[in-house]
């Protein structure tokens, strides 16, 4: 139920993000979601892609510092209070969210949120217990 996410260290220089995206796109890797955390000197870009292993290898071969780690994707009802329900469960179980971002979803009544937890397994069991719609890697790219 976990989803693999690629993270890349990006210096705050013009054109660097473009180079990462171009590298992935040029090799037929589809970026479905991304987020960028930035400081004045550098940024951390995180991607959800259709071919995580291939993307990771490509980045490494091109001298980027990249990491791969697990995140959780949850389908959230696209209506008021949809996200609140998830956060409420996490808060009750005292589970910290490191960061989260939204997934590009062309159609449907649901939004998809990507969560990065400190303790992914603990978070997963809590969310499963509350019957939230957790999406696996395969189905993520068939949406």
């Amino acid at each position: 139920m976990k989803i693999r996410q690629i993270s890349v260290f990006i210096e705050n220089k013009s054109g660097r993000l473009y180079e990462v995206i171009r590298l992935l796109g040029g090799n037929n890797i589809n970026v479905r979601a991304m987020s960028l955390a930035d400081t004045t000197d550098f940024g951390i870009a995180r991607f959800i892609v259709n071919e995580p292993d291939e993307a990771y290898r490509l980045l490494k071969d091109n001298d980027f510092t990249a990491g791969m780690n697990d995140v959780v994707a949850i389908s959230v009802p696209d209506k008021p209070g949809g996200l609140a329900g998830i956060l409420h469960v996490l808060q009750q179980k005292n589970i910290n969210i490191e960061y989260m971002y939204a997934f590009v979803n062309q159609s449907g009544d649901n939004a998809i949120m990507i969560f990065r937890f400190d303790d992914t397994d603990l978070a997963l069991s809590a969310l499963k217990g509350a019957r939230f719609d957790i999406i696996n890697e395969k189905s993520l790219f068939n949406i």
């Binding site: 993270s7 260290f9 400081t39 510092t65 990491g67 490191e98």
Partner: peptide, 11 residues
């Protein structure tokens, strides 16, 4: 930056 010095979490 190398693998050991890089994290996906900003904190």
């Amino acid at each position: 930056v190398s693998d050991n010095l890089f994290f996906d979490k900003m904190k």
